[in-house]
Amino acid sequence: MQHQDTHSVSVAGVIIDDQGRALLTQRRDNGHWEAPGGVLELSEDITTGLLREVQEETGLQVEPIALTGVYKNMQRGIVALVFRCRSVGGQLTETDETRAFRWVNADEVRALASEAFAVRVLDAMNPDHPPAVRQHDGERLLSA
């Protein structure tokens, strides 16, 4: 199998507060607003990777509540597993990867994030919705 035929797996944690708002982070490298997360390391399990990535990008310790979606970037071959989480400790801290944070409602998510990343957060904000399976091109959703 050639390298360009492989996938990368990433995880993201949509942290929901007591008011139903989600935490978005602003990335230092491109200024985009997204849920905290990143690529799983080869030797780590999914939950360990999720907890590590969220803490590295936010300073928060979280508890995963539910898998809320599986998303594939068709251009880059990245499969993302997204989880609704709640904060259980730590303190929001800017890092080498994040330069700002915002607790946002659904309308603010739509205004700040590109469609491909906003839908992950919106899916996670809806506790009655079964896990979504979606494809995108890095910016826009693609039909199945």
Rank of each mutant, 00 (worst) to 15 (best):
G13L: 02
G49V: 13
R102D: 11
Q91A: 14
E115T: 11
V11P: 11
R86Y: 01
S43E: 15
S8N: 09
A12L: 01
W33P: 06
E97G: 05
L141E: 12
H3G: 00
E34F: 02
Q19E: 14
E44V: 04
D17L: 08
V54C: 08
D123M: 00
L50H: 05
A124E: 10
D17Q: 04
H7N: 01
E94H: 05
A22Q: 08
V9L: 06
I65F: 03
Q75D: 05
V9K: 02
T48H: 06
E115S: 05
G38C: 12
L142Y: 05
L81R: 15
V39W: 10
G138I: 12
T68P: 02
R28D: 11
H7W: 02
P64N: 11
L141I: 13
S43Q: 10
E108H: 04
D128G: 15
V9G: 00
V11S: 03
G59L: 07
V54A: 10
P36H: 01
G49C: 11
E44R: 02
E53V: 10
R86H: 14
T95M: 11
I46Y: 06
Q55I: 00
V109M: 11
W103P: 01
C85L: 07
E53H: 09
V70W: 02
H129M: 15
A113E: 01
A116M: 14
L42F: 14
P36E: 03
T93K: 14
P127M: 03
T48F: 02
S43I: 01
V88D: 08
V133I: 12
N126A: 15
E56R: 15
P36V: 05
V9A: 00
P131F: 15
G138V: 08
M1F: 09
D45A: 11
V14H: 00
A35P: 10
I46P: 00
M1A: 12
P64G: 07
A116Q: 11
H129V: 02
D128S: 15
A111R: 10
I15Q: 06
C85S: 11
S143R: 12
R86A: 12
L60Q: 07
G49M: 11
A132Q: 15
Q2T: 04
T47K: 06
G20A: 01
H7P: 04
V119S: 08
Q55T: 12
D18E: 14
V9C: 03
G138L: 09
D137C: 01
P36K: 02
L23K: 07
T58G: 06
A111Q: 13
E34D: 09
G59Q: 06
V109L: 13
V79D: 08
A116I: 07
S8A: 09
L112C: 03
P130S: 05
R52L: 04
P131D: 13
Y71M: 03
V109N: 12
H7V: 00
G59K: 10
Q2Y: 04
A66T: 07
T95E: 03
M74V: 13
L42N: 07
I16P: 06
S143D: 15
G20N: 05
R84T: 10
T93F: 02
E97L: 14
A12S: 15
V39S: 13
G20W: 06
C85W: 01
E53I: 01
A22L: 08
